[in-house]
């Protein structure tokens, strides 16, 4: 219940209507959106029960390794109702053609593979919010100071998922495990996304805001 309440509203991409469509424009829009989503997601993390009790250093470490997984999971969940399209924002939906134009076709196809998995499972909002919190708590940072505290956060969230499934999805006793088993693909997709945006950063043609840059550098 606390995670459902903590779930942030979607934000808008607001691509500049005066600039003609191009790869640079699309990537600028995505990077700007990601930067603003990150601010929202840091606020969200503070509402995960137990997260604010971690040391500030450990909170930072988890976000530095897990931020892209959180961004991607949010895009995935927003895209469940559509076919072969990614809802980066309510006003910024990418189809195959737009993905090609922006040079993110491979990346978006991997994200669509996740969408397909969750669609097949008919993931609900409760499962999505817990899975997102689990992906943060389980982001495998190598810099954790208090490993036991992070483990107990993982246990609490894992327990919440199991309790929910045993109450709501009695038809499939393995459903919690099935959801957890989608996390490797999320990890792989996030790594690919970070790599892609790091190379865009190196090209230097797309303006990026400071928080996005800071977190890209943390993962580089």
């Amino acid at each position: 219940s606390l995670l459902l309440v903590a779930e942030p509203e979607s934000i808008f991409a607001m691509p500049d209507p005066t600039v003609p469509d191009s790869d640079i424009k699309a990537l600028t829009t995505l990077c700007d959106l990601a930067d603003r989503e990150l601010v929202v997601n840091i606020g969200w993390a503070k509402h995960i029960p137990g997260f604010p009790l971690l040391s500030l250093a450990d909170q930072m470490s988890l976000l530095q390794s897990g931020w892209m997984e959180i961004l991607i999971l949010r895009v995935v969940f927003r895209s469940l109702a559509l076919e072969d399209k990614l809802v980066y924002a309510e006003d910024y939906i990418m189809d195959e053609e737009q993905s090609k134009l922006a040079g993110v076709l491979d990346l978006n196809n991997t994200i669509l593979q996740l969408v397909k998995k969750y669609k097949a499972m008919r993931i609900d909002k409760e499962e999505f919010v817990v899975l997102k919190a689990i992906s943060l708590a389980n982001s495998d940072s190598m810099q954790i100071e208090d490993v036991d505290a992070v483990q107990s956060l993982q246990d609490v969230l894992h327990g919440a998922l199991q309790d929910y499934e045993s109450a709501q999805h009695t038809e499939d006793p393995r459903r919690a495990g099935k959801l957890i088993m989608t996390l490797p693909l999320l990890r792989q997709t996030a790594a690919r996304a970070v790599q892609h945006f790091c190379s865009i950063k190196q090209d230097g043609r797309v303006p990026m805001h400071k928080l996005f840059l800071e977190l890209l550098e943390a993962r580089a």
């Binding site: 840091i42 500030l56 800071e214 550098e217 943390a218």
Partner: peptide, 15 residues
């Protein structure tokens, strides 16, 4: 950690 000033600041803000 000094490199991650914005993240640090956002986590410290009590929102």
């Amino acid at each position: 950690k000094e490199k991650h000033k914005i993240l640090h600041r956002l986590l410290q803000n009590s929102t």
